[in-house]
C-alpha cells in the first residue's frame, strides 16, 4: 500500500518535473517581460491623464512620418532579408565543403557579427563621410579624380533610394554571419547519405541542392529567416548612427525619437507607446504569416 502510494507520488513528481524546470522561465518572463509589455499596452490606450482613448493610434496613423516609416521599413525588410538569406546560404554552402582552412575562413566571416554596434557605426561613419576612407580608397584606386568626391550620406539633393540602399548593404554586411551559422549548423546535421545518393543517381551540384539539400534544410531555413525577419522589421540603430533621426524614418526609430528626442512634448509617451504597439502587431502578423506560408505549423501537426 505504502509502496504503491510512493510510486504514484513519484510518478506525479516525474510528470511535474518538466514544469518545475520551466517554472523559473515563466516567472522571469512574467516579471521582466509581461509587466513592461502590459505597461506599454496600457500607455498606448490611455491619454496623459490615464483615461481610456484611441486617440493615440489616430495620432500615430496621421503622423506625417508614419507612412514613410512603414514604407521604408517594408523596403528594407524585403531587400535585406532576401540579400542576407542568399548571402548566408552561399557562405554556409561554401564553408560546409570543409576545404583546407575552412575553420579560419569561418572565423573571418564571423567577424562582422562579433563587432559591437558602436564599432560598426564608427566604421561606416568614418567611411561614408566625404573625407572618409571609402572615398580615399576610390581615389587611390583611380576611380575618383583629384578633388572629386562622392557624397554618400548627403550632398546637394538627399536621395532616399541611395540612402536606403546603403542601409540595406550595411545591415546585410553585419547580419549575414549570424544567419549563416544557423544554416551551417543545419547543413552539417544533414545525413550525408542523402546527398551522396543524389550524386550517385547522376545529379549535379545544382539539382542536388535544389531537390535534396534545400528541402531537407527547410526547418533550419525557417528558423533562420523568422529570427531575421523579426529583427529586420525592428531595424533602427544603424540608421540613426549614420543619418540621425528623421532622414530615413523607420518604425522603431520613431519610438526612440518620441522617447529620447522630444520627451518634453506631452504626447511623446503616448506616441511612443502607440508606435510600439503598431510595430509589435506588424512583427507578430508578419511572423505568423511567414510561419503559416512556409509550413512550420503543418510540421507540428504531423509530428
Amino acid at each position: 500500500m505504502v509502496a504503491t502510494r510512493s510510486r504514484s507520488l513519484r510518478k506525479m513528481w516525474g510528470q511535474a518535473t518538466p514544469y518545475l524546470l520551466i517554472l523559473p522561465v515563466v516567472i522571469y518572463y512574467a516579471i521582466f517581460w509581461v509587466r513592461p509589455v502590459i505597461a506599454v499596452i496600457i500607455g498606448s490606450f490611455t491619454d496623459a491623464s490615464g483615461v481610456f482613448t484611441l486617440q493615440n493610434f489616430v495620432m500615430v496613423f496621421s503622423d506625417e512620418n508614419f507612412w514613410p516609416a512603414l514604407n521604408n521599413t517594408a523596403i528594407i525588410v524585403l531587400f535585406s532579408v532576401t540579400i542576407e538569406f542568399i548571402g548566408a546560404l552561399f557562405l554556409a554552402l561554401l564553408i560546409n565543403r570543409k576545404f583546407f582552412g575552412s575553420s579560419i575562413f569561418l572565423f573571418l566571416t564571423l567577424i562582422p557579427m562579433a563587432l559591437p554596434a558602436v564599432a560598426t557605426g564608427a566604421m561606416w561613419i568614418t567611411g561614408l563621410t566625404a573625407h572618409g576612407w571609402i572615398n580615399s580608397l576610390l581615389y587611390y584606386l583611380g576611380v575618383l579624380a583629384e578633388g572629386e568626391k562622392i557624397y554618400w550620406l548627403g550632398g546637394m539633393e538627399p536621395n532616399p533610394t541611395k540612402l536606403l540602399a546603403l542601409v540595406i548593404i550595411i545591415d546585410a554586411w553585419q547580419v549575414i554571419p549570424s544567419m549563416m551559422i544557423i544554416i551551417l549548423a543545419g547543413l552539417q546535421n544533414l545525413p550525408k547519405a542523402a546527398k551522396e545518393a543524389g550524386y550517385v543517381f547522376g545529379g549535379n551540384f545544382m539539382t542536388v541542392l535544389r531537390k535534396i539539400t534545400m528541402p531537407m534544410l527547410r526547418p533550419t531555413i525557417q528558423t533562420a529567416v523568422i529570427l531575421r525577419l523579426i529583427s529586420a522589421i525592428q531595424i533602427w540603430l544603424i540608421i540613426v548612427l549614420l543619418l540621425g533621426f528623421g532622414r530615413i524614418p523607420v518604425l522603431v526609430e520613431r519610438i526612440v525619437y518620441y522617447h529620447e528626442e522630444v520627451p518634453g512634448l506631452n504626447i511623446s509617451y503616448q506616441m511612443a507607446a502607440g508606435y510600439t504597439i503598431v510595430v509589435s502587431t506588424i512583427v507578430s502578423l508578419t511572423a505568423l504569416v511567414y510561419l503559416r506560408v512556409s509550413g512550420a505549423f503543418k510540421k507540428e501537426e504531423t509530428a
Binding site: Y29, W33, R35, P36, V37, A39, V40, G43, I226, L227, I230, S231, Q234, W236, V252, I255, V256, H259, A272, A273, T276, V279, S280, V283, S284, A287
Partner: peptide
C-alpha cells in the same frame, strides 16, 4: 520568437 516581437527599446523604457 515571442519576446523578440516586442521592440527591445520599448521594453527598456517602462
Amino acid at each position: 520568437l515571442f519576446v523578440r516581437m516586442f521592440p527591445g527599446v520599448a521594453i527598456a523604457l517602462p
